[in-house]
């Protein structure tokens, strides 16, 4: 589609560690369409956060980023930092896992939301204050007038996360990147926040890149899903493709490893043996081959590319899908 909100092509991120560069993200490509929620899932250390930080160019200096991140006809990687600052927090905004570390502890809530608005919009401080108050109401903060005047430490984790959403949504962004927005919260509070995010994307047409390791959250929130393993996307497709016709052994492994809350009868869990490799010791061939029960000699020697599964949108990076494609 020509009018994707974001079009990421062959994104690579390498970190310099003691003189050598190692890939934390390798050859990652995906699109995000208007109004859709794309889930990015995978275990700890597989490169989800590095990918999201690369999109908004917030990685440390030691990172080398190459590839294309196309947004409104421009490659974000080529923009001067000044232009990037105009986009960040305005057209593309972010929510991170730890709300406490992303709010400034010495500023009042009202000031923090107003600041974002004043930075990106041509409005008076008074208007900014009014709009901030409106945002607090929108995200369901009780006593919004009082809260405007309070500091982050006076709020609960769930309220802080709602404030983060208010700030992220203040400028009505086209894309919201949410990195584990509910992982630190209790399920009842998580339910409030997910409901809120759903409502916002529906009402305002905001696209969401939702990063999580919780497959339940993915099933509930996402239209499409990209599964990451060891710095690569190994499978992507619609949420139905991923849950009802998973192809890649890693995707299947993840789905089999979690207990099914709606199972009638208790089934023994099927773990994936082994661990995610560190970026300094990526296996040769298919990166999943050391943990894969289907691995052949070819898997251990040669990296598979993407193969199409049953529809053009459903892709799997596994040699087993080669035969099926042909």
């Amino acid at each position: 589609m020509a009018n994707s909100v974001l079009n990421v092509e062959s994104l690579n991120v390498e970190f310099n560690m003691e003189g050598n560069y190692f890939h934390a993200v390798r050859d990652v490509s995906f699109k995000i369409e208007p109004g859709e929620t794309l889930g990015l899932v995978g275990e700890s250390g597989c490169g989800k956060s590095v990918t999201s930080l690369a999109l908004v160019r917030l990685l440390t200096q030691s990172a080398r980023v190459t590839g294309k991140i196309e947004y409104q006809g421009k490659n974000l990687l080529d923009l001067p930092e000044r232009d990037m600052r105009d986009i960040r927090g305005n057209e593309i905004s972010m929510i991170f896992q730890e709300p406490m570390t992303s709010l400034n502890p010495v500023y009042k809530i009202g000031a923090q939301i107003s600041e974002t608005l004043l930075l990106h919009k041509d409005i008076s401080p008074r208007e900014a204050f009014q709009q901030s108050l409106e945002m607090l109401k929108k995200v369901g903060i009780p006593r919004p007038e009082d809260i405007m005047d309070e500091y982050p430490h006076q709020l609960s984790g769930g309220m802080r996360q709602r404030i983060m959403i208010a700030i992220a949504m203040a400028c009505n962004p086209k894309l919201l990147i949410a990195d584990e927005p509910t992982t630190a919260l209790d399920v009842t509070i998580q339910a409030q926040i997910l409901e809120l995010m759903k409502g916002i994307s529906k009402d305002l047409g905001t696209s969401i890149l939702l990063i999580t390791h919780d497959l339940g959250v993915v099933a509930e929130m996402c239209d499409r899903v990209a599964v990451m393993y060891a710095g690569q996307i190994v499978e992507q497709g619609s949420v139905d493709d991923i849950f009802f016709n998973p192809q890649h052994p890693y995707t299947r492994g993840l789905l089999n490893a979690i207990p099914k809350i709606d199972a009638e009868q208790k089934q023994r869990l099927q773990p994936i043996e082994g661990n995610v490799p560190p970026i300094t010791r990526m296996p040769k061939g298919c990166r999943f081959s050391p943990r894969c029960m289907h691995a052949s000699d070819r898997c251990r020697a040669q990296q598979p590319g993407f193969f199409q599964v049953d529809n053009a949108e459903h892709l799997s990076r596994c040699w087993l899908n080669e035969a099926k494609e042909a």
Binding site: V187, E195, E220, F243, I261
Partner: peptide, 25 residues
């Protein structure tokens, strides 16, 4: 009931009535 209804289920076809608890602990 609220607690159980809040648990996200890894099945995109399951649609549930969710009981959203207001407020914090």
């Amino acid at each position: 009931r609220a607690l159980l209804s809040a648990v996200p289920i890894p099945n995109p076809r399951v649609k549930r009535e969710r009981i959203i608890l207001q407020g914090d602990l």
